Simulated assay, not measured.
Amino acid sequence: MSAALPADTVAAPRARKAFIPLECNPELMTRLVHDLGLSSRFGFVDVYSISDPDLLAFVPRPALALLLVFPVSESYENARLEEDATLEDWNKKGEEEDPMWFKQTIRNACGMMGVLHAVANGARELIRPDTPLSRLLDRTRPLGRLDRARALEESDELEVAHKHAATQGDSAVPNAEDEVELHYVCFTKSAKNGHLYELDGRRKGPLDRGQLGEEDDVLCDKAAAVVQSFIDREKQSGRLDFSLVALTPTFD
């Protein structure tokens, strides 16, 4: 699973604001969340396999969240539209909301949305007080989905941190208005009900992907099977441009 420059599908509507696509680079993403306020004891690492025990052994556990980068293909779009047609728009907020979900209205911001979903749910208790992350989450948690999306658009701290990270990667820096065909989704485990959730700002809300065991993290077999379903869907087309990173403890 190699690094990629993910963002939104070419079919996405034009947003009021656009971000430079964020490279799927665990070192860059770790610096980003540390700058925003996450504890330095946690960061992102590459996941090179979801089935090989030897490669999985290199990933510190527990894995608190996964960020998957995948091609936005016709088969994916068809599956997304079919499932979304059966769902209502997410209307939870505040203490009743679990997991916390952000609607994406910023163009090419799916990388930042994935990072926000990862830390707001998988690592909420690990955010330092009086930091950009803590202030952003405190401000947006009581808001409905549209006001919350607007608050992200208006956050200067978020925009500055994202721009700094997006221009520091190993790949050529794309333009914020570029059309790209890769996308991020986040997977986290609910602390309240133990379910695995797929979090994607392009969807209608969080997607419940089933119950996990009490001791399971987001790299357990059940969670890996959900990730594998994205890969299996693209086997017919031969698309192999997937990347996977995990939010985990860091060890010196």
Rank of each mutant, 00 (worst) to 15 (best):
S75R: 12
L68R: 10
S73A: 07
G194H: 07
A12I: 02
D52V: 14
H162T: 04
L158V: 08
A165Q: 08
P26E: 13
R31A: 07
I20D: 00
K189D: 06
P206Y: 04
S39T: 11
R239W: 11
A120K: 06
G210K: 06
E215Y: 09
P53N: 07
S134C: 00
N121A: 06
K204E: 04
A11D: 05
R124D: 00
A63W: 08
R124P: 00
M1Q: 01
H195I: 03
R139D: 06
A85P: 00
L182Q: 13
D147F: 01
K93A: 09
P21K: 05
P62G: 05
G43L: 10
R16C: 07
W90P: 00
P142M: 01
D221V: 14
L137G: 01
F102T: 02
A166V: 02
A118I: 12
N175D: 08
S237Q: 12
A79S: 12
K204G: 01
L126G: 01
D89L: 12
V185L: 06
V33T: 11
I127Y: 11
E82I: 01
D170Y: 11
E157T: 00
L126V: 04
G201H: 05
L5T: 06
E154M: 12
D170T: 15
E125G: 12
R239G: 11
A176T: 01
L66D: 05
L87P: 00
I127W: 12
D178K: 04
H117R: 03
F251I: 11
L32N: 02
D46S: 14
T248F: 08
G238L: 13
L38Y: 04
T250Y: 11
L81N: 14
E82M: 08
G201M: 03
R61G: 02
A246M: 11
E74Y: 02
F230C: 05
D46H: 13
E96A: 12
E198Y: 03
A65Y: 04
V245D: 03
C24R: 00
L152Q: 02
R14E: 10
R61S: 13
R139F: 04
A85I: 05
P60I: 10
R233M: 15
Y184S: 04
E177H: 13
L81Q: 14
F70N: 09
E159R: 02
V10I: 10
V173C: 05
A15F: 00
R139S: 07
V33I: 15
V180C: 12
A246V: 10
L55F: 14
A123Y: 14
L28R: 09
M29V: 06
L133K: 07
F58L: 15
A166F: 02
F230I: 10
L244E: 04
L22K: 12
S190R: 09
T188M: 09
E153M: 13
S40M: 04
